[in-house]
Design a protein around this nucleic acid. Sequence first.
DNA 1: GTCTATAAATCGATAGAC
DNA 2: GTCTATCGATTTATAGAC
Lengths: 201, 201
Amino acid sequence: MAERASSGPPRGRRRGSPDTRSAILAAARSSFAEHGFAGTTIRAVAASAGVDAALVHHYFGTKDELFLAALELPVDPRKLIAPAVAGPVEQAAERFLGVFLTAWDDPDIRPSLVAVARGIMDPAANRLLSEGVLPVVIEPIGVALGIDRPAERMPLVASQVIGLILMRYVLVVEPLASMPRDRVIATYAPTIQRYLTGDLP
Amino acid sequence: MAERASSGPPRGRRRGSPDTRSAILAAARSSFAEHGFAGTTIRAVAASAGVDAALVHHYFGTKDELFLAALELPVDPRKLIAPAVAGPVEQAAERFLGVFLTAWDDPDIRPSLVAVARGIMDPAANRLLSEGVLPVVIEPIGVALGIDRPAERMPLVASQVIGLILMRYVLVVEPLASMPRDRVIATYAPTIQRYLTGDLP
DNA sequence: GTCTATAAATCGATAGAC
DNA sequence: GTCTATCGATTTATAGAC
């Protein structure tokens, strides 16, 4: 009864208790974000999720696989940054910073992003930036914006955004950590806009 | 014979083989830089230095103390950045970037700096930035330069420099990693100069 | 599915011989 | 000064009962 018809992609819950699985995943994200990869123990993740350590292995296999699973963002970054590329390129920096801060200020996805940031720093998984974040998130923005030499300019943008993210959200350095969103945008927009469309040597 | 006379401060080698001690320290720096704090084991450091693990404890005590010893830079950062504060504030950004890149491009001190950068990222030791690098290295520059609201502007400078350092030296992302020194300075100097002396919201 | 029990390896740190 | 030996605690991971 109430079985799904055979139309559309397979939706609905997978086998196993999805609550338990996602609880483990959420606990893993928090731990990876707070203690890094090496500083996270399977036992602590299990305890934080209220389950046994063996269950973590049952769902995710090794610690590495759990880490990769925890890095899967709950939202598609490409969808998130779509508003940044829609509009005149002259105000692209403000829109870009806006969607970025919106994502990072969302308490639902910030832990995942912090985990990604820390994972990038961990030598055990730092192909993540060069093979992941940069080509699938950052560079397509430059291409979509139609800017000049995107492969050259977007890393400049990334260098400033990563530094800001690090100081404001990961290391929580004042006064950046407590600075209002609009002020952050107004402060950094000229820098980003110059990297996007300004004169470069 | 040939013993030192009792004049002047105690110079010369301390007790113990200085080669062994510095070999341990060098191995510790490499390991901390490559594997982070939690990913570094005393045993691996000892093996890399060609000595026994117990000897590491003998010289440096606990793992934390070894970490702090490994972070001791071979040069005094304050001396290094002295040229950056001497001169007109209008070109401070160029001088600032110059001394920074000079230090990071020096193969003798880059491993230590990479270790510091990774140590900052490790949650187990991230008081290092807020209690170490920022107040003793970054902020004094702003004070010495006599800029307006240094506690507010220097974190902005730090956010861009850290992002640049991360992309160019730690993550080795192109084209920043291979960009000539002068071009890096020309690219980032306007940003830094604005954070130092420009108009902010 | 979930847990107990435990194997097997590795860790930091100490004591003590030489 | 340097190393052997080892303790005690933790870790990942597996085997198997319920």
